[in-house]
Amino acid sequence: MHPGANCLGGKNQVEFTVSDKEDEAEVKITGRLTFAEHEQCRRIMAELGESSGNRQVVDLREVEFIDSAGLGLLLLLRENAEKQSRSVVLRVPAEGQVRRMLDIARFQDLIPIEN
């Protein structure tokens, strides 16, 4: 399978870029972060795991839609980071579906949210 395609050969509905700086790695996610994108989620996990720095920033400001599987990915990222003694913060949009999901699931109690 070539990168950029999901397991059914369709187009991925979520894209991401990881920028790795000295003390901080940032992953910027765009599109729909859902159960159908589990392969992309694995790639995000792997790339962030290999990054350097003590802090990981997950930028969700351009995510259009997130479901519980997407929330699951965020928890996994936190867990992985904790194992490596690194911290994770989320950047979230001020409003919209993503914000609402994080509020409903009380994510601010689980992962620090940076405004």
Partner: peptide, 8 residues
Amino acid sequence: SLDARGFV
């Protein structure tokens, strides 16, 4: 349970 290996 939700861990990285389980997810993979």
